[in-house]
Design a protein around this nucleic acid. Structure first.
Lengths: 133, 133
DNA sequence: CAGTATCCAAATCGATACTG
DNA sequence: CAGTATCGATTTGGATACTG
């Protein structure tokens, strides 16, 4: 008895102390926007490539098989806007622009790489299942 | 000298012994199809919900905020076709259909949950970055 | 090199109505 | 309850041409 924070009622959370827990399954939770940002194949391919040394536009264009310049730009701009990717323009002629991960992006890259690896490690079983149908 | 497998040339892999390593960055690698299967928000939301007890159509419809019946069916059918989800029709009237994960799907769910959790844990930082722009 | 701009085809998706 | 079928709006994305 005698709570330090004196909650307004018995077991309800103190409103000003903690926000509602994030829930991606709730369409209105801000975390859902984050899921939508990263739940597409180009983000899943570009982000992991950005670990290690920074990459240039043309490097990414070559390394991400099947991506178009338009989609690459769009993906990078979107990630940059959301603080996951940093764009560094060296202001030279000819242009030299490098993309790298922010600390937040680096943290994300670790979980995304696991997804990529899962796809690589298990595609044979998926293919087998599909052929069975 | 005198290799047991007598490779055709010095350091090349024996063709009939091992397939080319999977590479999601290669647009033609079968693993890319797997990535495309799971790299969308509905798969990322539905698969983790299917751990634990099997779920019915209406349960999923309620739990996955914002999904339509059409997209739920489409997602489940797609996952079923690829061996990740098992559909169990109890053949009763009224209908009672349950969806659960295959062992392969269960394995995938573990990496996907990590993505969901990342989104929930870091949305505030993403929101902050977006507001900074 | 690192993009942008534009056009247009194709895929995605929600809403609605209907079925066993 | 568990879907299917269909329509139309919106989004996505590729190809091409152009710019600093």
């Amino acid at each position: 008895m005698g709570n330090l924070k004196t909650p307004s009622k018995k077991s309800e959370p103190v409103e000003e102390a903690e926000a509602a827990p994030a829930d991606v399954w709730n369409a209105d939770c801000p975390s859902r926007r984050v899921l939508e940002l990263i739940a597409n194949k180009w983000a899943l391919l570009v982000i992991p490539l950005l670990r290690g040394k920074p990459q240039r536009n043309n490097e990414l264009l070559r390394k991400v098989g099947g991506i178009s310049q338009k989609m690459l730009t769009q993906t990078l701009r979107d990630l940059e806007l959301n603080g996951l990717v940093l764009r560094e323009d060296h202001q030279t002629v000819p242009p030299h622009v490098e993309y790298r991960l922010s600390p937040l992006g680096l943290s994300l890259s670790k979980t995304l790489i696991a997804v990529d690896r899962w796809a690589e490690a298990n595609h044979a079983q998926i293919d087998a299942a599909r052929h069975r149908q």
